[in-house]
Design a protein around this nucleic acid. Structure first.
Lengths: 125, 125
DNA sequence: CTAAAAGCTCACATGGATGTCAGAGGCAAG
DNA sequence: CTTGCCTCTGACATCCATGTGAGCTTTTAG
């Protein structure tokens, strides 16, 4: 498939796909005239890349980690595997933090609603 | 306390504290000579702001939400409360997404380790 | 064949929180 | 007073994934 189709299948913009390639995250074969072509695997690949982006990894970090996916058990994936574990832990900590923040929001909302209910039950209004 | 102390107590940079004020998130009283002064409440306030930032809210959104904390049950907190609920939901979805991503990482790591174990058990190496 | 749609490269723009620098003034201790 | 540290404002710099536009070529549909 060409880049436009990959874009619409993944929800990434054409611009982003070219950027991923520039960063070494996504490979493409080129037609005789220079157009990029992708196999169906590309969809999964892009999805993973997007997933890692939303997990807060930078393109550099993603580039460090992906070899582990491409060439499992190769020597050079030692570092990748370690990096992956490290990012996994960072992610876990981040998730925990977000959950605390959600709890804080819930607390604020509850306090607000309680306050509001009290007002409604009392004098003026 | 002055800005430097608030910064070191919260871990925020002095630059950031001034930025928060500029965005209407953090109030300060000024000394006769123009220096900012804060009460102890400022520490909690800044902590909340940071929490919301790491939850992915923009300063604009935080500004919309904070009135709900400052003036619970005021009319103008109606919108704030709604916004808060909305951000809470967004945050929940984001957390769920991050958990899926962590699961994906776990899967990749497990596959890699399995592959590696198989290699070690077989021919060459 | 022709026109529309899609691709290519290059390069500059954007947004948002922060960093950083410059120049000036405030304030406490020796 | 002076020295050193803190603070002030204002402005410019940075990072990084994307958006955007120009100018040109390829592909596809009618």
């Amino acid at each position: 498939m060409r880049i436009g189709e990959l874009a619409s299948r993944t929800g990434a913009s054409v611009r982003s796909l070219r950027y991923y390639e520039e960063q070494g995250l996504l490979a493409s074969t080129r037609s005789a005239r220079g157009q990029r072509h992708y196999t169906d695997d590309g969809v999964e690949r892009v999805t993973l890349i997007q997933r890692l982006y939303t997990a807060g990894l930078s393109s550099r970090t993603i580039a460090e980690v992906l070899p582990c996916v491409d060439a499992p058990s190769e020597d050079n994936s030692d570092a990748a595997l370690e990096r992956m574990a490290q990012e996994r832990d960072r992610l876990s900590a981040h998730i925990a933090d977000l959950i605390r923040t959600r709890d804080a929001l819930d607390g604020l909302m509850a306090a607000n609603r309680a306050h509001r209910a009290k007002l409604r039950a009392s004098p003026a209004c």
